[in-house]
Every structure is written in C-alpha cells, then in structure tokens.
C-alpha cells in the first residue's frame, strides 16, 4: 500500500487531523477540568476562563485544515479521479506527520499551561491577559508546524 500515492496522501491527512485533534482534546480536557473547578467557586469568571480553555482547541483546527487542503489537492472531492504520483503521496504524508505531531504535543502541553493559568485567574481576575499570553507562547510551535505543512501541501500542483 506504500506504493500508492493516493493511499499515502490519505494516511498523511488522517495523521494530521487525528493527532492534532487528540492533542486538542487532551489539552481542552486538562484546561476544562480545572476551569470547572474554578467556576464552582467563581461563576462570574466564565467569560475569561472560557477563552483560556478554548486555546488548546486551535491545533485540532490546524490539523483539520491541512487534512482538508491535502485531500482537496489530490482531487478527492472532485468527481473526476486524478492519478496521484507517489512523490506527491510522500509529500502529503510528511506534511501530515509534521502537523500531527506539532499539533499533538503543543496542544497537550498548552492545556497544562492553560490549566495553571486558569488557577491563577481564579485567585486574581486581573491575571487573565497574562495567563492567555503564557498559553499562547506554546502555540507558536504549532503555528510553525502549520506553516511548514502549508508550504509543503501548497506546493503540490496536480
């Protein structure tokens, strides 16, 4: 199966979406559990805490983005099937692996930073902005992953 361009491409797209999605899930789980705890004490903080909790969610979207872009590049959504050369398949596979792992690790760990930030906001509301900034520092690396994956996928011309 590693000789078919289309199979490789689909594996790449799946890795990007699934790994980044799992990372986001774990990240939001970590942050969300902490958020629920803080909210039980201070329900007024919901707006601020929601924003911090949502931060690890973006990696899942980046993964989805790469997956859909890759699938549309190989013509999966069009009615006429396109022959996908093996090199293109490998391009997409590597882009997917890159996005998947960058998204997975950064979302997973961003969730921890977000959870700690939520704890800080629970004690002092005015720290919300700083807590967001700290969590966003990690996201940089997901964005770099996204950037490189985008450049790879976008270079494909079929």
């Amino acid at each position: 199966m590693f000789e078919s361009g289309i199979v490789l491409s689909i594996i790449g797209a799946v890795i990007a979406a699934v790994l980044a999605g799992i990372g986001s899930g774990i990240g939001i789980y970590t942050a969300g559990s902490k958020a629920a705890g803080v909210l039980s004490e201070k329900p007024d903080l919901f707006g601020k805490i929601l924003v911090i909790t949502a931060l690890p969610g973006s990696q899942g979207v980046y993964g989805l983005l790469i997956a859909i872009l890759a699938l549309s590049k190989i013509g999966l959504f069009s009615t006429t099937p396109v022959e996908v050369p093996i090199e293109i398949g490998y391009k997409i596979l590597w882009a997917g692996i890159l996005m998947g792992f960058a998204g997975f690790a950064s979302a997973w760990l961003q969730g921890r930073v977000a959870a700690a930030g939520i704890g800080a906001v629970g004690r002092d509301e005015s720290l919300a902005g700083k807590a967001i900034v700290l969590a966003v520092l990690i996201e940089t690396y997901a964005i770099f992953g996204l950037l490189v994956a985008l450049l790879i996928v976008n270079s494909i011309q079929l």
């Binding site: 979207v61 980046y62 989805l64 983005l65 859909i68 872009l69 940089t140 964005i143 770099f144 996204l146 950037l147 985008l150």
Partner: peptide
Amino acid sequence: SRIMALGLSTGVI
C-alpha cells in the same frame, strides 16, 4: 510568520 499562517487558516477553514 504566524500572521501568514493564521491569515491562511481563516480562508482555508
């Protein structure tokens, strides 16, 4: 470079 990546992601999603 994040400006470009985020700009692209809005459109692609």
